[in-house]
Design a protein around this nucleic acid. Sequence first.
DNA 1: GAAAACGCTGAAAGCGGTTACAGATGAAAT
DNA 2: ATTTCATCTGTAACCGCTTTCAGCGTTTTC
Lengths: 343, 343
Amino acid sequence: MKEHSVTIYDISEQAGVSIATVSRVLNNSSNVSEATKKKVLNAIKDTGYTPNAFARGLGLNTMKTIGILAADSSDLYLAKAIYYFEEELRASGYDSLLCCTGYALKDKKAAVDLLISKKVDGIIFVGSNFVYPDACDNKYILNAAEKVPVMLLNAELEGQNIYCVSSDDYKSMYKATEELIATGFKDILYFYNSLSYSGTLKERGFRDAMKDAGLNVVERQLQFFEGTREDVHGMSAQLEKTASSGLKFSAVLAADDTLALSAVKYALSKGYSIPEEFSVIGYNNSMLATCSNPELTSIDNKLETLCQKLTATLMGVLGDEEMPKKTVFSGDLIVRGTTLRRD
Amino acid sequence: MKEHSVTIYDISEQAGVSIATVSRVLNNSSNVSEATKKKVLNAIKDTGYTPNAFARGLGLNTMKTIGILAADSSDLYLAKAIYYFEEELRASGYDSLLCCTGYALKDKKAAVDLLISKKVDGIIFVGSNFVYPDACDNKYILNAAEKVPVMLLNAELEGQNIYCVSSDDYKSMYKATEELIATGFKDILYFYNSLSYSGTLKERGFRDAMKDAGLNVVERQLQFFEGTREDVHGMSAQLEKTASSGLKFSAVLAADDTLALSAVKYALSKGYSIPEEFSVIGYNNSMLATCSNPELTSIDNKLETLCQKLTATLMGVLGDEEMPKKTVFSGDLIVRGTTLRRD
DNA sequence: GAAAACGCTGAAAGCGGTTACAGATGAAAT
DNA sequence: ATTTCATCTGTAACCGCTTTCAGCGTTTTC
């Protein structure tokens, strides 16, 4: 099978030059005469030679590769982020090594080691679930940052060589809560499925907005969904159960569009008319928002902008520039069919 | 920054052994006495050493890495496939290098070269859009196959060192068409957005089923959507336009759940009741199917099984086993709310 | 016309591992 | 006591590429 792949030596021999010259041609570096360059390029074309990136990486001690860590690449939001990163990185001359870690801390640690051993030039942690409320669980990130710049999307962590780009989830959720209240919905159920860093921010936004509006929040009003992120049926079942257990709510503020969609499903099954009798606000403004019927009012946290900014920051860091350790973008509330218009 | 990272030499020095011994400990190979092993492991722990994967790769000429090529990692279906592959590969001791190529041939070629240069042990082409109807456009795949095993998901291409695992899209679409006809819908609009290999199969399935039912198909009945894969509004607008241009249809057979969802949107906007007056069948049985209201009847092509089979085949090939060059799984029609039940 | 500068090329060291081979040590067999 | 053998460890070559340094021929400079 692997019948001794073509190396720079084969090229040098065929072109009648030294390997150094071949290397120079490959890298477009320093002065090589047109004649020799042509000879080398021909030899390369003839043999179908592709340089060995290991060998190059060994010498240069960089593979021009950025590690991307995401819990679940099939999550709509994370997938989109990965896509943007891939695109941005490629445009900057970097490749990406993707690791889907799942949500267990142990696997996240293993993935970081793997990326380090592959000598990535930087690591992007996609999504807030990598940063834990308990500080000592975050040591693996600090360790990584000792070796390589670490970028956090939608999470925050202080530390040398750690850079954060995130959306202002606190404010967004505060705004969303206000919106529901302003359109006449006071018995709001907060529906979430992640205990992450940004999850905490969102929850605080909801609580504070309720408090500032003089509304009381009972703990049952915050529903945590434990199932998988795609289990829409399970989600609406939980709402159903919550309602039948006696808690009254006429609006759902969801930490995620999928949860919001399940709320729409629940409301329709109950025969409520949306948005007059029952309102819903989602989060992330994913494609689900426009797929839904009626379409979801949702928070757009400008993922593409976040990803661009994060990549730009990373490139700056790699170029030894001084870069801001923390950038926050505020989100927009996109009003669609699951909330009332106000004028 | 990069303050001379810890190497095997540092470990050997600290542990008072040779680098060969350190290497042996790292690879758990041959006989190393417990005492020395312990010394080495301690040194590793103390220094936080992680082996350099380039150097290892250079020596072994394998990085234990599989390249994954997908046009768009944020596409629901592709993202899911990527997720399964990642999972399966990791379980088999391989890592994955993801390249999102976009849909342009040129970029696909570039991505293949990149993977080859990174010395991946195999390449998985995720999705049928990598195989073109025009054979000479597929040369880049044959080239890749000269260097490394090539795996095709949902596409077929003859060639040395090329292995295909796919769903029987022809039969599935044939079945779906039959279902619509059997439930009383004969003026079916076929809605698609991809000219890929499996796209062709699907279309043939539709055409043949219609023909076998004695139904005529006019070309306007096959609508191609050119926009992006998430533009639900654009899709329903096209249906709207098609309808107002005079073509009558009371059912949509979509090559993709997103397209199907847009059909639901269109039908609802027209005030048709689903599924009695208007039926829809989607494809892929993605989460959109259960997100929709009413929920989509869709073809489940058992993506997870496909991915598992493909990975297993690849592992077999890498282990120099004889493997089937082509495996086909048939799909299931999952009946939900957008088609009538039949008894 | 000799010296200096320049453009191009090659030899060789090094990147950090793996591994074949040889050497050292100690126990078992004769 | 000597040989044999197994067990453990070290030396050094090698993987394919980049890059420094030196060398050489040619042109410029005074």
